[in-house]
């Protein structure tokens, strides 16, 4: 009897789901349209995936990080980030928080390949960087809150040239000689970190851009070498970004 009720309940739910068919083609076209409308914002979400915006673990002086997925693979964002501890928590006086400098940069080899192989691209640049600081303070043995600022920039530039017939690339009937698209903003960061085990942490943070009102949340699980994350961009084209980063702290 129990099994019958359970089966009926599942079928009822599935019936409801199949009733509302999903139009994947229309959804895909909508997403492509959103990317074309604001390509910089789309690519900047991937830059945020590689940005190291958590504080250095207690006792460490500096750290290096590189984003593996989805940044290096498949997006070809070759990247490196660094953290440097300016002040350890409580060193000058009890209660004075830890202060870290953070920063990093990335570049895409796709821009160089495009320049080399294309007959209409004179030069191209596709990359970004960020610089900031994180202040962190332990509020209990198990909780550390952190606050930060970062200035973040993405550059997407190309200078075009006419083909062998002297014709410029066109977009909707207009000659395109160059384009300079990018993203730049100052962000505030607020987050909380809690240990999951020995040398294992779980954190949750909010990044908010003051000029563009761009915002994201990052959920991260990290240990000595690797960081797994789930970055959420509620207003982005791809809302969920699963993230895999590698870091070494000294």
């Amino acid at each position: 009897m129990k099994r019958l009720i359970l089966t009926s309940a599942v079928l009822l739910c599935l019936n409801g789901i199949s009733f509302a068919a999903i139009d994947w083609q229309s959804k895909g076209m909508q997403m492509v349209g959103e990317v074309l409308a604001n390509p910089s914002a789309f690519f900047y979400d991937f830059q945020q995936d590689l940005e190291a915006t958590t504080p250095l673990t207690p006792g460490k002086s500096f750290g290096l990080q590189t984003g593996l997925f989805p940044t290096t693979i498949p997006m070809t964002f070759v990247n490196v980030s660094g953290k440097y501890r300016l002040h350890a928590e409580g060193r000058i006086a009890p209660g004075v928080p830890q202060v870290d400098l953070i920063g990093g940069l990335w570049n895409s080899p796709l821009a160089k390949i495009a320049t080399k192989d294309s007959k209409t691209i004179e030069s191209a640049k596709f990359g970004g960087d960020y610089l900031g600081a994180i202040v962190s303070s332990s509020v209990s043995p198990k909780i550390r809150t952190f606050w930060g600022y970062k200035h973040s920039m993405l550059r997407a530039k190309a200078v075009l040239k006419p083909d062998e017939n002297g014709k410029w690339p066109q977009l909707m009937g207009t000659d395109i000689k160059s384009f300079d698209s990018g993203f730049k903003d100052d962000f505030l960061i607020a987050g909380i970190e809690t240990p999951k085990g020995i040398n294992k942490y779980w954190s949750m943070q909010l990044n908010y851009g003051l000029k563009t009102q761009t915002f994201s949340t990052k959920l991260s699980w990290y240990g000595k070498i690797f960081e797994l994350g789930l970055n959420i961009y509620p207003e982005g084209v791809l809302v969920f970004h699963p993230v895999w980063n590698m870091h070494i702290n000294f």
Binding site: I17, A20, D23, F215, P234, V239
Partner: peptide, 13 residues
């Protein structure tokens, strides 16, 4: 997933 219209994503922070 609404009965009329296409699937969409949303959230709250």
């Amino acid at each position: 997933l609404p009965s009329a219209g296409n699937i969409f994503s949303g959230g709250n922070i």
